[in-house]
Design a protein around this nucleic acid. Structure first.
Length: 269
DNA sequence: CGGGCTGTTGACTC
DNA sequence: AGAGTCAACAGCCC
């Protein structure tokens, strides 16, 4: 569930709190999250100092003096900064800093903590293939990327290699505000459809970003984001009336994921 | 108690 | 290339 608003918020918080800290210890409880052996990981990053934190799509990119630390929370999880020596019940990865503070990471299911050398980020098998952050695109750039695609709209918007940042939680309201069906074929979109889609993406993601992300994810200090259930209009509200036309909202299968749509406002053409 | 669902990503198949 | 299926793990709901 962490998507662009949550990950971008975490990057901002980490930039304020972690720059200059030195990585002094690692406790790795789930070694499957690594892309190298535990031994190689520790050897590479122990003693490194944090320069800056940025994000791309759903990935946190930590630039250190000894290379990149790359974090993906998968289907959910927390990154908490603890300064009092206590630990939350659930933790799978702990980074101990030389000042005694700790960055405690918990994945709900499956996440990644990867290492890449300074000049090797572009060759990382996942991060190297990510498209641009979707909020960084201008409309002409967005349109140009979309026009090169075929197939179903939803599948393409979730494909992080084209544009990075949208996941299966925010997409329901985005498509509703753009009045587009998740299964609509990309070549059928006209200029005004793409404009509506672009505007809906920015509106939705920016609103959540401004609120520090969604309520179901915690920030570095354990506080939930300000984007609440009330901010969700269509998603996860099957059976409730559409706020525009009162038609009951439907939950439909779209490939391997579910979608929530207003069957009247979002016609499949 | 158990079955179904969920969210990310990639691998694999047709 | 597009579409479908599955696997990785945990927790919630009915």
């Amino acid at each position: 569930m962490p998507e662009l608003p949550e990950i971008t918020s975490r990057a901002r918080e980490m930039n304020k709190a972690l720059v200059g800290k030195t990585l002094a210890s690692f406790e790795i409880k789930q070694t499957q999250c690594l892309n190298v052996t535990e031994r190689v990981f520790k050897k590479a990053l122990l003693g490194a100092t944090i320069n800056q934190i940025s994000s791309k799509g759903k990935w946190l990119l930590v630039d250190t003096s000894q290379g990149w630390l790359l974090i993906n929370l998968g289907m959910g999880g927390e990154i908490l900064l603890k300064t009092d020596g206590t630990l939350p019940k659930k933790h799978r990865f702990i980074i101990g800093f030389s000042d005694g503070s700790q960055l405690v990471i918990n994945f709900w299911w499956f996440g990644y903590v990867h290492f890449a050398k300074h000049d090797q980020l572009q060759f990382h098998p996942i991060v190297g293939k990510l498209g641009p952050n979707i909020l960084d695109l201008t409309f002409p750039e967005f349109k140009s990327i979309l026009q090169k695609q075929r197939g179903r709209l939803k599948t393409n918007l979730l494909d992080q290699s084209k544009m990075a940042g949208i996941g299966n939680a925010y997409i329901h309201d985005i498509l509703f505000f753009a009045k587009l069906h998740p299964l609509c074929q990309i070549p059928k979109l006209d200029e005004s459809d793409m404009r509506s889609l672009f505007d809906a993406i920015h509106r939705e993601l920016r609103m959540s970003l401004d609120k520090g992300g969604a309520f179901y994810e915690l920030n570095l200090y354990g506080n939930p984001g300000g984007f609440t259930e009330k901010d969700i209009v269509i998603g996860y509200r099957d059976g409730k009336p559409c706020p525009v036309c009162s038609t009951p909202i439907q939950k439909v299968k779209t490939g391997s994921t579910s979608s929530f749509i207003c069957p009247d406002c979002q016609k499949l053409v």
